[in-house]
Design a binder for these strands. Sequence first.
DNA 1: CTGTGTGCAAATGGTTTGCAAAAAC
DNA 2: GTTTTTGCAAACCATTTGCACACAG
Lengths: 145, 145
Amino acid sequence: MKSLSSEMQVFLEYIEQKQLKLTPHRELILETFLKHEGHRSVEDIYRVVRESDPRIGYTTVYRTMKILLACGLARAIDLADGMTRYEHLYNHEHHDHMICMQCGKSIEFYNAEIESIQDSASEQLGFKVLDHKLQIFGLCNECRT
Amino acid sequence: MKSLSSEMQVFLEYIEQKQLKLTPHRELILETFLKHEGHRSVEDIYRVVRESDPRIGYTTVYRTMKILLACGLARAIDLADGMTRYEHLYNHEHHDHMICMQCGKSIEFYNAEIESIQDSASEQLGFKVLDHKLQIFGLCNECRT
DNA sequence: CTGTGTGCAAATGGTTTGCAAAAAC
DNA sequence: GTTTTTGCAAACCATTTGCACACAG
């Protein structure tokens, strides 16, 4: 028997809690999203999903991505290119982004020290940290010359 | 004689370099922007500017804010409320934002340690840091119960 | 004059919504 | 049969752009 991925379990739980249904469309969008790493726009996802089922509409992708955000499977990121992009969140290490201002490439990185200092600095100000986004803008290895 | 603010000097320099002109409209928008602290949307600025000169159009505010961004007098921030907001950059301490997910309030903070670790961590990855944005999402003192 | 700046209205483009038909249960 | 989901088209809304006019050198 085939075992469900833990992401799918999270999804099913959320869907039940919210009294939503697991439809083939939602399932396909989730699978497609999980299958690809990186920073993907709604249009990216829409294009790939369409290869499996051309009857799926743009709107459904938008609506499903909202569900994935709400249940913690996706994270919205803004790479300053005019549209919201999504990346996996659940079961993935938290990380931040360095964005090259010349070529537009974005590099993921993680630094435990930064994370812990953020938490303690916020606590000192009475702020309870739930999430954060750090974007570092500059020039990547190839572009800095 | 009245001395120019250093911000105005930066503006004049940039304007000359780009062969633009110092028009009354641009000057008024800059003054208005400088006069108010905080995170202000184009509409905020437009409303205030209109009190001094109702003939100024929305478009001009947009176009002038672009100039202010380009010459380093303003910084664009995204407080996730659907529109771009601007705050002073020149002659102001760099800072980051904590955004309360309940009441929407944003708190500015600065932590030197975070700054320096960001730089060194990025350097290690061959990335030249030019700017960064850090947003911490959570609950502020009042909202955390 | 010549060229830049400006206001208005219209266009743009990512995202959301209204609604009737389709699918799920 | 009742309720949720979906696709399409239209609406939205912040921002940008086209264009004719205003204004400065």
